Amino acid sequence: MKSPWKLLILALLALSLLVPRSVSAGDYVIDAIEALKASNVYVAPGTEGTDYDTANKLEKTLITDDNIVLVMLPSDALVGTDLYTIARRISEGLGNQKTIGLAVGREVIGYSLILPEGVASDKMMRANSVSHNSVAALITFTQNIHSYVMYNPQPTLVPTPEPTPTPRPTMTPIELPKAKDISWPVWLVMVVAVLAVVVWVFVTIKKN
């Protein structure tokens, strides 16, 4: 017969395997950031009100280059933190280059540093007021952002062109004519001129 202590230890070990591992808010944020580097939608496993097709539904509302990401996390992601902090951390993890639509349980928030201050938050509040669940709120939020950008196009950052250096004038070297390039009439004139100078010098010396 086995010792009662051994049976108790085995029972405790088996029970520990059945207890789900607690996940901190930081873990949810890290998982979301990593997933959003490859996709614009992240639905954490076990999030309330979601199923196998939720991510696909959210993905269909996005358009190319709209810079929107949609995130759904379970309500226990709020333990020890708040909705705004989670949204801000996700934005920072993505270089603050995305508009965040975040649902944690039934709580939702819009966050963006690429839109004017307060726009994302306002669009999410409006979406939530006419939606019956978080999925519907995120879909309506996306539509609201698309409408806002359509009527309020955001300026595109154009890199400042580098000044073109002013070219400095270059001195073209003067090339003296080569002997082979001088024609014979020119040579004849030069010879006559030299002879004339020699004769003049000779006559001048003789007179003196």
Results as ranks from 00 to 15, higher is better:
residue 48 E to Y: 10
residue 101 G to M: 04
residue 81 T to A: 02
residue 94 L to V: 04
residue 149 V to E: 05
residue 117 E to V: 11
residue 123 K to M: 11
residue 134 S to P: 08
residue 129 S to I: 08
residue 76 D to F: 08
residue 93 G to I: 01
residue 13 L to M: 10
residue 17 L to I: 15
residue 100 I to A: 02
residue 129 S to V: 04
residue 136 A to K: 13
residue 88 R to V: 10
residue 11 A to R: 15
residue 55 A to N: 07
residue 22 S to E: 15
residue 101 G to W: 00
residue 138 L to G: 03
residue 98 K to W: 13
residue 154 Q to R: 10
residue 50 T to P: 05
residue 30 I to P: 15
residue 91 S to D: 10
residue 24 S to N: 07
residue 55 A to H: 09
residue 88 R to W: 11
residue 108 V to T: 10
residue 112 S to K: 02
residue 81 T to V: 00
residue 25 A to P: 09
residue 131 S to Y: 06
residue 70 L to W: 02
residue 45 P to L: 05
residue 38 A to I: 12
residue 120 A to K: 09
residue 121 S to K: 14
residue 45 P to K: 10
residue 20 P to Y: 01
residue 129 S to D: 07
residue 111 Y to I: 01
residue 74 P to C: 01
residue 137 A to E: 06
residue 150 M to T: 15
residue 120 A to C: 01
residue 59 E to D: 14
residue 116 P to S: 04
residue 40 N to S: 12
residue 103 A to K: 00
residue 131 S to F: 06
residue 35 A to R: 04
residue 49 G to K: 02
residue 22 S to K: 14
residue 53 D to A: 15
residue 74 P to R: 03
residue 67 N to A: 15
residue 94 L to E: 02
residue 124 M to Q: 00
residue 26 G to N: 09
residue 73 L to H: 01
residue 25 A to F: 09
residue 15 L to A: 15
residue 86 I to V: 05
residue 55 A to C: 10
residue 46 G to C: 04
residue 80 G to A: 01
residue 152 N to F: 10
residue 16 S to R: 11
residue 68 I to D: 03
residue 67 N to E: 14
residue 76 D to L: 07
residue 151 Y to A: 15
residue 132 H to G: 14
residue 82 D to V: 02
residue 98 K to S: 10
residue 78 L to C: 06
residue 121 S to W: 11
residue 17 L to T: 10
residue 18 L to V: 13
residue 8 L to P: 10
residue 145 I to P: 00
residue 13 L to H: 09
residue 138 L to R: 00
residue 72 M to I: 09
residue 69 V to R: 08
residue 153 P to F: 03
residue 53 D to K: 13
residue 78 L to G: 05
residue 146 H to A: 08
residue 146 H to N: 08
residue 27 D to N: 13
residue 95 G to C: 03
residue 144 N to A: 06
residue 56 N to V: 12
residue 116 P to H: 04
residue 66 D to N: 07
residue 36 L to T: 03
residue 107 E to K: 12
residue 20 P to N: 01
residue 33 I to Y: 00
residue 45 P to H: 11
residue 64 T to W: 14
residue 121 S to M: 13
residue 111 Y to P: 02
residue 131 S to G: 06
residue 56 N to F: 15
residue 122 D to R: 14
residue 148 Y to V: 03
residue 36 L to H: 02
residue 89 R to C: 06
residue 94 L to G: 01
residue 109 I to L: 08
residue 126 R to N: 11
residue 95 G to D: 06
residue 15 L to F: 15
residue 73 L to T: 02
residue 134 S to I: 07
